[in-house]
Amino acid sequence: MTALQVNNLRKSFGGLDVIQDVSFTVEPGERRLLLGPNGAGKTTLFNLIAGDLRASGGRILLQGRDVSALSTSQRAACGLGRTFQILTLFGRETVLGNVVMALLGSSPKRWKPFGAVVHDTALRRRALSVLARVKLEGLADRPIQETSYGEKRRLEIAMALAQDPQVLLLDEPLAGLSKEERGTVSALLEDLPRSLTIVMIEHDMDVALAFAERIALLNHGRLLVDGTRDEVIADPRTREAYLAQ
């Protein structure tokens, strides 16, 4: 069974086709890179897979299950996690508070109208262990406003990991980071267990190419090349797509 399967996916905005007939499959445990120049439709594709946008046509299968008709939150419940290219954190919370929100999202407790969240020690312990995975446990009680950009980027990943997804969509996890921070985050990504399937959009070629096993190249909303890392790098269409920019 494939982890993620996209069949003939289409999306148009007012007559403008931004995603045209895209199909690909991602095997369980695979590291897949989504490549393409700016405006190629990569983030739109993520939004379609995550359910933030409704496809104009085609199907999306998650772990073999057709999720095309499901809402974003239902797809999350099916084991799909994602991070955002633009930081999307709860600015009034602490670092730990953000992870707690993520943990509650996949718990039936989220409908409980009583019992203070801050007094839930079991929840706090779980949140700390998630933070440990991105080396942020030392900052657990720091307000978000007092954290650095790099720490926020790692928290962005921790939020998705807290959901314990089977398939993880990473939208430019290294965007805007310094060289040193890039090292930290890419090491962190390397350490993620192979039970997790990852699809990543990333412009930092050094990290991205080292990370990816297979690459899908997108341009003008179409899937141009889909293959192993070496195949895609060697393909003349890859060079063309980037040179045209």
Binding site: D52, S73, A76, F84, T88, R92, W111, K112
Partner: peptide, 27 residues
């Protein structure tokens, strides 16, 4: 009591970051 509970936290999460909330599995 409600605003301190998980449901109350979810309400405030929806106020601040609706998009993230649905990604996290909240309806």
């Amino acid at each position: 009591v409600l605003t301190r509970s998980p449901l109350g936290a979810a309400m405030q999460g929806v106020r601040d970051q609706p998009r993230r909330m649905s990604t996290l599995g909240y309806d």
